[in-house]
Design a protein around this nucleic acid. Structure first.
Lengths: 211, 211, 211, 211
DNA sequence: AATGAATGAGGATTCATTCAT
DNA sequence: GATGAATGAATCCTCATTCAT
């Protein structure tokens, strides 16, 4: 016999889903218009609810914004990097697999939105920036360092790689996302493809000299 | 004898200087607060004038914003790259000199501001993005391609470099500026230093194999 | 054998008790926050029910307010005064007994609340003021006049007492209630004690001269 | 030659007068509708200005309310009482003169308004109540005590008058103001006339017995 | 009967824009 | 040209009221 949880009325289901619906709608509008430029009216219309309903779930516009970031925050990257440290095999293969996963992650518009919202509104929400740094950046950098160290240990990468150099491995991710946000219409750059290319160059440029 | 233009009273001088003063103040405030978050009151206070005066020189907030971007727009980079195509000598030296100049350019806060304003407010001002693309990006990319081609021709760089790969040469510029804007307080990255390091790796990674 | 009405289920009992519970809670909140400042949410919480339930028993906020006043309105004073006209004995004793009863009546916070609500919100609910005047003030004044007249007839009070003078007998009741509402924390005045004192002075001041 | 202050432009004059105009209008509307029931729109219309203008002079609705009370607060009574302590002559004459002055003061609707606003909104603005107590009540009570003591010293009033008894001398002022606010339409009581009558009774009731 | 999620009209507040001085 | 007081449209937020469950 199958254990069942308590039955949920359709209302309960709806109520539990609301915050996510609102966040999803808000993310969209915030991303288009920025924080100050976003009208909660529009968020409501987007979410198919009324303005007042937003306030049943979020104290005010600030809190809604923070919730958008907190809920959508880019842990996928950090997790991807973390799991990659367990990889066995040549660093080249590891990095190219990473490139695939990162490319996939950033194909999610919500995920990209957060990124730009933090750039745009960071000054207004310094706590959020700190949160993002602690939750996303720090573990990502840490994992990336491990990956590099692993590469050095294996002899795939030469010794003198600073932490900043390691970060540069991912700089095209930022660059291309910014580029596509702005100039998508003029000339779109393919993230995955370019990242693969960059990794090749980078690996080649940091390969230890064979004797 | 030297021909002189009509003498300008201090008042006239002031009048001609006003727009620039206002733009400078506005740039500052826009950069901190974004377009919608900027109050013209604050711009006026920053410029040491009254709010009404802004309207003597700019039709409205939109036009003031556009003027900020148009006047401050990052031609220095494009010009630097352009002039670099005339350089004679090894590509390595050329690129490291470029790195210095780019580093200097981005040490100007006004210049960095424009960059972030376009990222943040691009959706609201698509014409401005197009303008930026035409005025800054296109010539920069073009010059960069020339520099690369010159390197290939000289035998400093291997053949199979796509335009995207060339762009990647500058991706750390974007990456580090974004990083420092957000995480300056947590961990500041030195633009020049890291750019030099990146150039070394990149050149090394794209060096043609010697026979 | 005693006739009994139909038995009431606990549910019925509850239903019949509800309006009073709601009124009691509402009275409390109205008194603290005034009419416009009162949220029905708070009334509901205070009554331990949900907001919607209020609307099962009262058409809207206005009607709830009116019900508060109508149900709690200060008939006790009018009745006390009415019954006092039947008193036999010296006016002095009569008035001091009255003072005791009035003091007791005003020790009920609900009763005091009504008083202040009418002062505060009278302009918004003129019908309620009229109602209060007809139900409470008119009979009270009438009874008070009878008491005075009785005192005059008995020779306890001199002849030339106007209706206004009679009202003044109770002016400290209003004064002290207002005082304590505002300045309770700074200096509380004892209603009964002061009323007794006032009655002594008043009686002494209106005593007919003996020949 | 007559000394003149700096000329004021009509604009300056207007600007300096604005706060008082706004307070005057606000007092009116607050008094009618209470704090929460007052729309700033209506205050603005009443003052013949636009809604936004209020915010040039007052931070928000709360501050406007406080300013209304602070600016209009009833120092006249305290000052009248204070000056009365210097009176020479029989206490009877002194008190009747006081009654006249108090009657005149309360003929000002703005002055009465404050009184009722403090009763109605005191709970929301406890600091204002304290302010009123310190600025108006304390000096008034103090002066009144002096007047009584002076009467006792002169032999106009008997000895055993407590401070509360002294306060009762003025209780009709509160009583009649409350009455007229509520029941003006049903039956208006004349403040001066009744106060005179009350003073006679009170003095007669507290007169020392002649041997 | 009771609930409480949802609504949307209403009101406080802000700020781009105007204009008399 | 410069000012800054005044305006009122725009937007956040509240809360009385409704209604599906």
């Amino acid at each position: 016999m199958i254990e069942q949880g308590p039955k949920k009325s359709s209302r309960t289901v709806q109520k539990e889903a609301r915050p996510k619906e609102i966040i999803s709608a808000a993310l969209n509008v915030f991303e288009s218009n920025g924080f100050a430029g976003t009208r909660l009216d529009e968020v409501a219309k987007f979410a198919g609810i009324s303005k007042g309903t937003i306030y049943l779930y979020f104290e005010n516009k600030d809190e809604l914004f923070k919730a958008c970031v907190r809920e959508t925050v880019g842990k996928p990257i950090a997790e991807t990097l973390e799991s990659a440290t367990k990889f066995e095999g040549p660093t080249e293969k590891l990095l190219h697999e990473l490139a695939e996963k990162i490319g996939n992650t950033f194909s999610d518009p919500g995920y990209r939105s957060i990124f730009f919202l933090i750039i745009s509104e960071g000054k207004r929400f310094p706590n959020l920036v700190k949160f993002y740094y602690d939750e996303v950046i720090t573990p990502s950098v840490s994992s990336l360092s491990n990956i590099i160290q692993r590469g050095v240990d294996r002899g795939d990468i030469k010794n003198s790689i600073s932490q900043e150099d390691a970060l540069l491995l991912l700089s095209p991710v930022i660059f291309i996302n910014v580029w596509n946000r702005l100039f998508r219409n003029e000339k779109k750059i393919d993230l995955k493809e370019t990242l693969h290319s960059h990794i090749d160059i980078w690996l080649n440029g940091t390969r230890p000299k064979k004797n």
